[in-house]
Design a protein around this nucleic acid. Structure first.
Lengths: 335, 335
DNA sequence: CTGAAAGCGCTTACAG
DNA sequence: CTGAAAGCGCTTACAG
């Protein structure tokens, strides 16, 4: 069943059928009705390969989401989509593996779908550096920054991870904690984890504490399981730690359970802080003290910047969106 | 930059370039090397629209996932993908809205990509009934059943929601609970929630308890926020309830926090049971007593059935996969 | 308002 | 092993 079948069945030409399907004006009511009738009757749907192969002009905006289990991204995405819908912009989302090359995907997408603009939810600067040059449409990267790359058509909006980590670790210090451990991510320069680690180290420095990564840092993936195991290892090595900063809320949640299983209470026996501000962090017992990334701002400023760049040639912007330190139940002052 | 450019630049014809790109045998080493060199140099990637428009034969299997925040699905999907990878089968996943028409998407996909088989992670029987007839490739539906529809190319694997709900509510009863409340889903026939509700009612029946939906049931979406609010409403109405069955773990997790905020402890003051067996359920404090759906079995049996159907004409199967009742910390016997 | 024709970027028999 | 040609299912000027 293709467009010629519909043409034949409706008694109109292929061109007319196409015009009806695309809602063009220059078609008689009679033809439109007849064609739609046949289309309905056979449940015909146009072949998108052929459609997009011909249509060279821009269709919509596409959002690339890196990692499916990232609740922060899920949250930001929801806001992006509803905002795009409000402005009447078509949008489609493409989910990528956590460590996939998002720029390569974008390149392919650009070629086959001719989007008017693209949004990256999460992204690795290394991929952008390598191949973003061939991307021709306006783009926005959210939750990471690429200001140093200097692409004319790429803006970015992110949380200042370094400052945020500094603030929350500073808060642990202000609560009187001196033996502070850190779990999550890895010590790889360029990654978001790294910036958080540097921020933490910086806060400790200011408090006159020398962070010994060998002893007081335990890397791990962003999952509850990993957080559980990481804190067990950390505490086995450094039992005198009184507060732990987890680089992500999911890590903190897993760690919290581990602490409980070790017979210690949070925050009475150990303070715990997270990062991100995902929904679960406020439903756990105890509620997590954490850095709340402003997903609403991240989404809306990203969308606005993209729409503006799609409408006219503008300078790219690289902005940092304010975060908030949520002081909740998982941290207590050392008396 | 298209295939003709590569042809021109490499000094070979368009046909030869295509053959190189597709790894065909009948190309000289010299031509292959030269073409790949040019392709590399320009970062050329074939246009997928044109590619799939021409290629009529089957390419791979596609997995449709209904709902991005469903951790159970995320878990099953991971297993499906690694299993498919092991068998050397190409696979791509398409994420759909929670209430999208997955069969319609499948129809479109079938037409443009000619998959060899499709897997649905979650699905509404109503959509299948309406338009699955036009799907021509082998398909498998996971977590829901469609045995009554009788399609020749559609198998299904699911948990017996009714039996599972009956068992966990039976367990609450066995623990001495008589005033049992239920939260989550809605009383809409045909849905998975409905089957769980019926199972719960059935268990109560057996215990000689008459479930009063008006008083002891509170519907809500599958989220922590919704669970939190639902149990607050439920307990306000029926303060004498001693145990609550939440139709999903996320609902239970939100409810647990609400109970705590109301100054009651789980399980000392109120017992709580969930459904699904997602990772969070074993990291929460207390750990959730819940029905664990066997995601490993669901995935592997689904994949095996699909591969079998792709290889030869076979009868569709509709199987139920064993679940497990995890008796953990959130339920206690009434003394 | 409608039809006939060109062409989007590929793949694949078909000759050679 | 390679090239020339047909055609996948559409859209869109271009005539009429």
């Amino acid at each position: 069943m293709d467009i010629r079948d519909i043409a034949r069945l409706s008694g109109y030409s292929l061109g007319t059928v196409s015009r009806v399907l695309n809602g063009r004006e220059n078609v008689s009511e009679r033809a439109r009705a007849r064609v739609l009738e046949v289309v309905e009757a056979h449940g015909y749907e146009p072949n998108e390969n052929a459609r997009f192969l011909k249509m060279q002009e821009a269709t919509s905006v596409v959002v690339f989401v890196k990692g499916t289990r990232n609740m922060l991204f899920a949250d930001i995405l929801e806001r992006i989509m509803s905002q795009l819908a409000e402005t009447g912009e078509q949008a489609c989302v493409s989910y990528l593996d956590e460590d996939a090359d998002e720029v390569r995907s974008a390149l392919r997408f650009q070629q086959i779908r001719h989007p008017k603009g693209m949004i990256f939810l999460g992204g690795d600067p290394a991929f952008f550096e390598r191949s973003f040059a061939r991307i021709e449409v306006p783009c926005v990267l959210i939750t990471n920054t690429v200001s140093d790359l200097g692409f004319r058509n790429l803006s970015s909006f992110s949380t200042d991870d370094t400052a945020a980590a500094r603030e929350i670790v500073g808060w642990l210090g202000a609560c009187g904690h001196e033996r502070i451990g850190i779990i999550g991510g890895s010590l790889t320069p360029g990654q978001i984890s790294y910036r958080r680690l540097m921020g933490a180290q910086n806060a400790l420095d200011c408090a006159g504490i020398d962070l010994d990564f060998e002893r007081d840092y335990e890397p791990c993936r962003y999952s509850m399981e990993a957080g559980y195991e990481a804190i067990v290892r950390l505490l086995a090595r450094s039992p005198d730690i009184t507060a732990v900063f987890a680089l992500g809320d999911v890590i903190a949640l897993g760690a919290a359970r581990a602490v409980f299983d070790m017979g210690r209470r949070i925050p009475e026996d150990l303070s715990l802080a997270g990062f991100d501000g995902i929904a679960s962090s406020q439903f756990s017992v105890p509620r997590l003290t954490t850095i709340c990334q402003d997903s609403a701002q991240l989404a809306s400023r990203g969308v606005v910047a993209l729409l503006r760049a799609m409408a006219a040639e503008v300078e790219p912007v690289h902005e940092v969106v304010p975060f908030k330190l949520y002081k909740r139940e998982s941290v207590r002052p050392l008396s």
